[in-house]
């Protein structure tokens, strides 16, 4: 099967699933409209979900994704208490700035997940990405590295923990 067709099929199934979960399938009219809309969505935007052949076993990748998910939720809880601490502190202890990190991930989907994780974890937010040089610009609310022009040090502090896990999931 060609890659675009497979991608469209998966988008069709996913959007139909979301529709059925939302309407809980009470009569045939809802099912019919849902299938029609899923077809429309998969024809318009279906080709962008999957762009490369799969490389590794699906089960191993799901396991890696579960590992990533637990790490992500833990980091996110930490992030929320960090923001609560900053906001409730009378002096607002912040030291903001925009720094740069490097990424080794090559796929667009992997990069998107990495940037979203960076935004939702303590003190950092993705501002922009430079796809030619594999660099991500990150707004950091409380810079802890001493030499903030040092890309490697920033990378080790901010994104290394996710990058390792995401490499197993996507590549």
């Amino acid at each position: 099967m060609k890659i675009k067709t497979r991608s469209r099929l998966i988008v069709f199934l996913l959007s139909a699933l979301v529709w059925f979960a939302l309407t809980s399938m009470k009569n045939w009219q809802e099912v019919f409209v849902g299938l029609l809309l899923s077809l429309l969505v998969s024809l318009i935007a279906g080709q962008f979900l999957i762009t490369t052949e799969k490389t590794k076993h699906l089960f191993l990748r799901s396991l890696a994704f579960a590992k990533y998910l637990f790490r992500f939720i833990w980091e996110m809880i930490k992030a929320n208490f960090h923001v609560a601490y900053i906001v409730l502190h009378p002096n607002l202890p912040i030291k903001p700035g925009i720094v740069k990190v490097k990424t080794k991930l090559t796929k667009d989907s992997a990069r998107t997940v990495l940037c979203n994780s960076i935004t939702l974890t303590p003190g950092t937010m993705t501002v922009d990405i430079n796809p030619d040089k594999n660099e991500i610009y990150i707004h950091w609310i409380d810079i802890v590295t001493k030499d903030y022009h040092n890309i490697d040090e920033n990378t080790a502090t901010i994104s290394a923990k996710f990058e390792k896990l995401l490499k197993e999931v996507f590549e």
Partner: peptide
């Protein structure tokens, strides 16, 4: 960025 900011590498680049 606010005055308290210490660096803006995005603008420099």
């Amino acid at each position: 960025l606010t005055r308290e900011s210490i660096v803006d590498i995005y603008a420099e680049d």
